[in-house]
Design a protein around this nucleic acid. Structure first.
Lengths: 215, 215
DNA sequence: TATAGTGTGTTAAAATGATAACAATATTTG
DNA sequence: CAAATATTGTTATCATTTTAACACACTATA
C-alpha cells in the first residue's frame, strides 16, 4: 500500500469517500458499488475505482466494496487510523469557529490546544479546550509531538508563526491567513484563503461573455 | 477580452495576483515584472504570463506590467469592478466569522444580508448588517438581484437551501456544508469543506512510506 | 541610430489528470 | 452447471494544465 505516488487530486477525494462510507455504515449498508458511490459523491465510478487503485485492490469483482473494510483501509491510507493531534494558532472568530466545528463534528482529529497572543482576554465555552499564550507553543508541540497545525492569524505575522511551527516539528499546515508562506521542502502547506475562494467564485457568477472593451 | 475559455486553475490564481497588486500599489510600486510577481505569489513567472494571456496582453515587452493598469484589468476580468452583492445563509459561528471577515477585509464584496432559521435569537456587533429569517430569502435576493451566496448551514438542510437560492436566481454558491449539493448546469458551486481540507492535510503530515500491512 | 539588455506574449513540448474501454472475476439464474 | 449478469482493476486514450523555449518589442546607452 504505497502512499507516495498518489496525485494531490486523488488525496483530496479520499476524505469524501470516507464520509460517504461513514454514512452508509450508519445506515447498515454492507456492500456498495462504485456506481452507487459515484451517485453519492458526485465523482464518476471510473474515477473512484482508479483513485482506490493507487493504494491497492479493496473490492470484489462482480460484487463491489465492503463498506466497513474499505473504510478501515481509507482510514489507514489517509492516516486517520489513530486520532491526529492538532493545534490551532489564532483564536479570533475564524479560529474559534474552526475549533468548535472540528471538536464537535470531526472525530478523527483531536485539537489539543489553541494559541493566541493574548489568551487572558479570550474565553470559550468549548469543554476541555486549553487556550495557551504563544510562548507555550514549542513546549506543547514537543510534548505531544504535534505534526499538524491550522493557522488563522493576521497576514503580517503568519510567516513568523509558521517559522516557529516548523522549527518545532510541524510538517503540515492549513493556512487561513491571506498571504503566501514559505516553508522547507518537507513541510506541506495547504492554503485555504476564503477571500480568494469567494473572489474566484464571483468570476463564475457572471454568465457568458464580457463586453469587449471600448478601448 | 474573452472570459469563456480560461481554465479553473487559472481563475483561482487571479485573485492572488490582485492581492499582490493591491499591496504593491500601496507601496507606490508602479512597474512589476512577472519574475518579481512570481516571488511574491509563489507561482512561476511563465505561469503568470500565460495566465494573463488568456485574457489579453496587459504588459509592455522589455519593461513589465503597470501595477495600476493590470489591477484595473484584473478587476474587470474577475468581475470585481463593481462591488458584488452577496448573502450568507446560516449565521452560526462559521457564518458569523466569514461575514465579519469579508465585511472588514474584502472591499470588493458587499454582504447585504444574512439569513438564519431563528434570527431573533441571534445578534451581532457587525454594523449595518441585517439578520433575516429564511422566509425573507426570495424577497431579498430578488430585490437586490443577488447572484452569489455563501452557505454555512447543516448538511441535512443544505440541498433545500440551495434549491431555494437557485430558484430565486443565485448562480454561484460557496458551500461550506459538508455534503454534496446538486444544482442545474448554469449554477457554479465551489465546495469549501474544511473538514476535508484538514483530513487530506493529515495525509501529508505522515512522512514517507507507510509500513506494508501485516496481512 | 545601432546595439545590448530586459521582459512580454506565443507557440511547442512535457507532465499530469480524467475518461473510456475492456479483461478478469464473482454472483445469480434457469 | 452453463450462461447471463454484475462489477472490479487495469490498461489505453484523451483532455487539461504546466513547463519550457523563443521570437518579438521596448528601453537605455554610447
Amino acid at each position: 500500500m504505497s502512499r507516495r505516488n498518489a496525485p494531490k487530486s486523488v488525496v483530496k477525494r479520499l476524505p469524501v469517500y470516507l464520509r460517504i462510507l461513514d454514512s452508509l455504515i450508519r445506515r447498515d449498508v454492507e456492500i456498495i458499488s462504485s456506481r452507487v458511490l459515484s451517485e453519492e459523491t458526485g465523482f464518476t465510478a471510473e474515477q473512484i475505482r482508479k483513485d482506490l487503485a493507487y493504494f491497492g485492490a479493496f473490492g470484489t469483482r462482480g460484487t463491489g466494496y465492503n463498506t466497513s473494510y474499505l473504510r478501515e483501509k481509507l482510514l489507514r491510507i489517509i492516516g486517520l487510523d489513530r486520532q491526529t493531534k492538532i493545534i490551532v494558532v489564532g483564536f479570533g472568530h475564524l479560529g474559534k469557529a474552526l475549533t468548535r466545528y472540528n471538536v464537535s463534528k470531526n472525530p478523527y482529529v483531536d485539537i489539543i490546544g489553541v494559541f493566541d497572543i493574548n489568551p487572558e482576554e479570550l474565553h470559550t465555552d468549548i469543554p476541555d479546550l486549553k487556550i495557551h499564550s504563544m510562548e507555550m507553543l514549542p513546549e506543547v508541540i514537543l510534548a505531544d509531538q504535534v505534526k499538524v497545525a491550522m493557522i488563522t492569524v493576521p497576514a503580517d505575522v503568519a510567516q513568523s508563526v509558521v517559522d516557529l511551527l516548523v522549527d518545532n516539528g510541524v510538517t503540515a499546515i492549513l493556512n487561513f491567513a491571506p498571504t503566501k508562506i514559505n516553508v522547507p521542502e518537507h513541510v506541506y502547506v495547504h492554503n485555504a484563503d476564503l477571500t480568494i475562494e469567494l473572489q474566484s467564485l464571483i468570476y463564475y457568477s457572471l454568465e457568458d461573455e464580457k463586453q469587449p472593451e471600448p478601448e
